[in-house]
Design a protein around this nucleic acid. Sequence first.
DNA 1: TCGTAAGTGGAGGGCACCGTCCACTTGGCT
DNA 2: AGCCAAGTGGACGGTGCCCTCCACTTACGA
Lengths: 204, 204
Amino acid sequence: MTAETSQMRADARENRARVLAVARELFAERGLDVPMAAIARKAGVGVATLYRRFPTKESLVVEAFTEQFAHCQAVVEEALADPDPWRGFCTVIEKVCLLQASDRGFMAAFVSTFPELHSEVRNRTWSAFAALVQRAKDSGHLRPDFSPHDLTLVLLANNGLAAAPVDVATAASRRLVAYLLESFRTGTDALPPPVPLSLELVLR
Amino acid sequence: MTAETSQMRADARENRARVLAVARELFAERGLDVPMAAIARKAGVGVATLYRRFPTKESLVVEAFTEQFAHCQAVVEEALADPDPWRGFCTVIEKVCLLQASDRGFMAAFVSTFPELHSEVRNRTWSAFAALVQRAKDSGHLRPDFSPHDLTLVLLANNGLAAAPVDVATAASRRLVAYLLESFRTGTDALPPPVPLSLELVLR
DNA sequence: TCGTAAGTGGAGGGCACCGTCCACTTGGCT
DNA sequence: AGCCAAGTGGACGGTGCCCTCCACTTACGA
């Protein structure tokens, strides 16, 4: 990729970078269904320029989210390095859910680009998480009937909160995660305060 | 409404009913974004017929889901009649989430038709639920920092599971609800078995 | 300085959807 | 049986999206 971009003309390289930045911003803010034209316009280029760099919308999505996926992987692997298994486990859930709540496009990008993209990243992350789960169970802090598939459950549930505006979703996500972690664990401690999730708020 | 429908010609009344039945079926199965034409076709009528009865797509949605909303209200009010406050509380969460998981359009209909529709049903249901919450807290089974707004939290989270096919979503919903109820409560008991929510499954 | 390959923008083709229009059909009263 | 208001269907206009095409512009090596 760097090999390709480095051979481009300077203005083209700059345009490409700007498009990518704008795409990330808009995807995070408004989800994946922002029109390509909106991205192009905000980046100050024509649609054709955008399509020259990213032949399809999906390819733009993939490119825009690779760093997020890599970030997830890093989170999981750092957590494995944490000497406290339970804290590592919690950190993963919290960080990933926070990322997801603050970026509307994240989950959609994950599922929409699923099969072709990042299979090796996905597999590595997945097995690292499984190890994390096992370690947390062995330490006696994580309930033994927790399944690694429950991560997907958490992600899907957390994704549902994205119906609310970003700030509300973020607060709601914190509370949801706290509830769930409490349930995943063998002990108990305090929750973050309730979120006044009236439907008026949820609907912006 | 009955007043209106009873004055219609017999064939028209029948067509109307069939359209509504088909709409409910398709909304449940595929969500609210089924094309009007698909509903008309499956109901064996033309698009114009559909629009004659329901001037806008939203009006069709409203009509199609009123019974579901009424059902929710009934669930909450029955739960208030349950002598066991905690069981009543759990029943509400379980039933509503089950309904939501088995009907893809449910939550979308709820939020999309929010302001104009059913405000009195909504308010009654809401205050009944608040009473249920208070009662469950007083009985000592529900954690005191539970907020009635957490119902919305649960609904949104549960709605996120709808990304998976209906049967998977239903199973996942059961598990999510079990986790959450366990967290809402002061005691603890067994969960339903884990759902193998691999992304392959989630993406049908 | 100048030629040219790389880069660019905007018009528009293709598609899917919502909702309308209007010429035709049909139920049901007399 | 016969009339006509009520009912019907499919073609069509409008909109918003993805993506392509092509005539024009510009960076940059010689």
